[in-house]
Design a protein around this nucleic acid. Structure first.
Lengths: 235, 235
DNA sequence: TAGATTGTTAATCGATTAACAATC
DNA sequence: TAGATTGTTAATCGATTAACAATC
């Protein structure tokens, strides 16, 4: 185990992926796995996997590999999943409701404490067992409860303002679903942005690029043979 | 402009962020910006920004910087936003509905063509102007329409199976919202996974780590001075 | 014991940053 | 013209991969 070496964000972001895979393996009754097999099934090199783990401890055994259940438990510990965290949700629109109704907070060790909105038509409604509160009560609420994180699901145009208010009220971590970049400035507040748009635009780029490459390839073929290549007829 | 150099995924994933910022700048009436200013406001170095752009062309002007509107237009072109793409959505649950009702597909140059579900209670319903179709008609539908991408919003346990079916039916790009990893195998199919869980677990890790660091810091302080440090009273 | 596979150190590769000539 | 800032090349830094001794 390496000490005093900064662990890269890349490594941290691979941990949930490992955990997901290990959980599936365990469900399938697999008891042991080597870094070679794990890497193979996830598209990582065995070296990378062993490097990643080595930052946190010695979880494997020479000649054997890793015990799936134990390794899973270790990663859960690294991610802090042995501790429960609490959260509040701001903005009970579609995405907010989708999270409240569908997202498995328990799986992530998070307890959703409260949800807020400013729409009188929503305030007082119950969504998945949680009564929607008036956002005007936010400051009063935070005087008593100290949630570990705030989930931001409000419309983009009010996101920055509300984030600032939340930080001023003592919130120290924000999970941001709005299409607006939230930054912590020079504070210790942690922000995780989940930009749907960025994700889709990235995918679009690669689609457009693949299509271009195909056209180029076809043109090249056409120039050299004088006929178009046959395409498999899938549709 | 560099030619024949593979452009890294890191660079591609920064482009939407740049675009977002430029769009905001334009709204604010800003006409020109230097790589220095742009980097400053986004947390990137000027070098990185110039490097990123240099893969695609010469968008700036010495002594001036970048024309906000032109640069925005150039990035939109790089991302292929000048072409329209079409999509279908699978699974009209909460997250599916949230996307249909709230997500700005137009902004991303995507037209949502159709939505499918298997629930008879949902089939035939209209969501944001789109009639929910029976998933049983999927194959027939894809015989005529050839959407550029499929948006996967079905429950985790059927995600892999449906993804396989979509690929068999000729779908070549998948935007995956399920908590299950979708892989393209060795096909040319492009998959963009948007794992809410991974994002939250990453945030959780950093929260837990910060809390730990604070405890350590406080203990160190306690050992050296014999008294606890004063904490700002925010709540 | 022999084979397998770890954890770690060293080598390589790639991405970021720095520097600077070109030029608006 | 002088100052500013690009685009690009070179230097640095960090992350990934390879190699291998340790050991189960």
């Amino acid at each position: 185990m390496k000490k005093n070496v900064k662990i890269s964000d890349n490594t941290i972001r691979r941990l949930p992926k490992y955990l997901r895979k290990l959980s599936n393996l365990q469900s399938d009754g697999v008891q042991r796995i080597s870094s070679f097999e794990l890497g193979n099934s996830l598209g990582n090199t065995p070296s990378q996997i062993r490097q990643d783990f080595s930052h946190f401890g010695n979880f494997g055994q020479q000649g054997y590999g890793y015990h799936v259940e134990n390794l899973q438990e270790s990663i859960r510990e690294i991610l802090g999943l042995d501790q429960q965290m609490s959260a509040i949700l701001l903005g009970v629109g579609n995405i907010g409701q989708a999270l409240m109704k569908n997202f498995d907070f328990t799986l992530c060790g998070v307890q959703l404490q409260a949800a807020f909105d400013i729409d009188p038509g929503k305030i007082g409604n119950t969504v998945n067992g949680l009564v929607v509160r008036d956002q005007a009560e936010l400051a009063a609420y935070l005087k008593n409860a100290k949630p570990d994180l705030a989930i931001l699901c409000v419309p983009s145009d009010v996101a920055v303002e509300l984030a600032g208010k939340l930080i001023a009220l003592g919130i120290e971590a924000i999970w941001n679903f709005t299409n607006t970049e939230i930054t912590a400035g020079d504070s210790e507040v942690l922000v995780e942005n989940l930009h749907f748009t960025d994700s889709l635009l990235t995918l679009r780029y690669y689609i457009a690029k693949r299509n271009e490459d195909r056209v180029k390839k076809e043109e090249k073929y056409l120039r050299s043979t004088g006929s178009r290549p046959k395409r498999p007829q899938l549709f």
